[in-house]
């Protein structure tokens, strides 16, 4: 939200609208969250009040980013996100439990593959009808799903070897 204020002062409703448009995807921002975040930013000196839009009321107050806020955004942007290691995976747990209990792990892999392919088809169709930012976010999701599928394929190829480890 702070980053969005760098493009110019906005009131709470406007912030929510721009956030949802750009980043909300399937999870729009709650109004309560907008105002609680703005109060926190105000308290920390990262934003300041910058007039009231005609119509009055607390929700029409406009907020502007401060110099300290700009520095905060710059630092946040160049701080890398921690790469996710995916070492805690429900898919892995299900495959191992299927093998430990003597069930057919292929069924686990097949069900997951079907679900993944379905999601990938939906995302591809959304991407085809969307603009460039839609493509960007859908591609991000598609590459991650594809990575899962490659793992499913590799695991399927290793099943007989793996089965021996758990039953032998």
């Amino acid at each position: 939200m702070l980053g969005l204020l760098e493009t110019g002062p906005r009131h709470g409703y406007d912030l929510k609208r721009v956030y949802d448009e750009r980043f909300g995807q399937d999870r729009p921002l709650a109004y309560g969250q907008v105002y609680s975040t703005l109060s926190r930013l105000l308290r920390n000196g990262l934003v300041e009040e910058s007039g009231v839009e005609p119509g009055g009321g607390p929700e029409r107050k406009r907020y502007a980013i401060t110099d300290a806020g700009v520095t905060d955004v710059s630092e946040w942007l160049v701080t890398p996100e921690s790469p996710q290691t995916y070492l805690q995976s429900a898919m892995y747990t299900k495959v191992v439990l299927a093998l430990m209990s003597g069930r057919d792990a292929n069924e686990v892999l097949d069900a997951q593959r079907t679900a993944h392919l379905k999601s990938m088809r939906e995302l591809t169709s959304r991407k085809q009808g969307g603009d460039l930012t839609d493509q960007l976010i859908c591609d991000h999701a598609l590459f991650h799903l594809e990575a899962d599928l490659r793992w499913l394929e590799l695991t399927a190829a290793r099943l007989s070897e793996l089965g021996g480890q758990f039953t032998g």
Partner: peptide, 8 residues
């Protein structure tokens, strides 16, 4: 490639 198959 699953990403290619997703066009089907």
């Amino acid at each position: 490639e699953a990403r290619v198959a997703a066009y089907s």
